Amino acid sequence: MNLPANGRRVLISGASRGLGRALAQAFAENGDRVAVHYGSREEDARATLASLAGDGHVLVGGDLSDPAGAADVAERAAAVAGGLGGLDVLVNNAAVNLPHPLADTSYEDWADLWQRHVAVNLLATANLSHLAARRMIDQGTGGRIVNIGSRGAFRGEPDHPAYGATKAAVHALGQSLAVSLAPYGIAVASVAPGFFETERVAHRLSGDEGAAIRAQSPFGRAGTAEEIAAAVLWLASPVAEWASGTVLDLNGASHLRT
């Protein structure tokens, strides 16, 4: 299977800001063409699109929590007219992470928030993976799928249990797909980041909370979106095929698995 090192067609879900923007920029700087997906933040997504090096990038909005919406996003991203003309790489980055500690959350809110996390974090990832992989199989040139998981899948998330549970499921999904898609030259891997700085969580890095977050790592700092993006770019590269099935910890030694 001949997967090029650059010039690939890359769909990144949830790419309007934060890690999604850093991912889009890393692939664009590598010479790839990127479909920037957004759910509701169109203005932010357009800012991401405008920031990308090179040309041929496209903007694709849509609700991934709806299976029909996911199919529409994949179709428009891969379209010959107005899209990328196919898909070589999928990065499943879209996610929700809303607090719902059990002791402080009503049953109605608890059930609603679990459904939202499952719909976006897990089912949208599964559906986009199917849609992208089928295109890669039909193209006959192999491909890459990289999932954004979380350190919380391993250490627990007491205030965000649905987030931790769905990210653990994303890791398991990636390993299942790594086995089933290998005969088609499609490698599947996941990353499990710890806390990393984006504009959405920058306020947490001040004062005592910020000091506690930085103290989680022996490096005494938080991670960066660019560090996560660099690892994803490598996992999506032709030379990373043998890493298929891996879950790569990116947490500055703040949580060590045995």
Rank of each mutant, 00 (worst) to 15 (best):
L113C: 10
A71M: 07
P101M: 05
S237P: 08
A253C: 14
R204Q: 15
N251F: 04
A45D: 03
N30W: 12
A253R: 13
A222Y: 11
A225W: 02
M1W: 08
V73A: 05
V188D: 01
T246K: 12
L19I: 09
A119Q: 04
A81F: 10
H255T: 13
L113A: 09
G220P: 02
A68P: 09
A153N: 08
E209T: 13
A47C: 13
R135V: 04
S129L: 04
G149R: 00
V118L: 14
N251W: 03
A126Q: 12
D112E: 15
S129G: 09
T48W: 00
R221P: 03
N121S: 10
R21C: 09
A50W: 07
A74L: 04
A47H: 11
S65Y: 03
L64R: 02
L113M: 12
N93H: 07
L131P: 01
F195Q: 13
L248W: 08
E75I: 11
Q216M: 14
Q25I: 09
A133K: 00
Q25S: 12
S13W: 03
R151E: 15
D249W: 10
R21E: 09
S13D: 07
T105A: 11
E75N: 12
G86P: 03
S65G: 08
D32L: 04
V120Y: 00
V36E: 01
R151N: 14
I148Q: 02
D138E: 15
E42M: 09
A70H: 02
M1V: 12
L23R: 01
P161H: 07
Y107E: 15
E226A: 14
R17C: 10
G18K: 02
L3A: 02
L250D: 08
V179W: 11
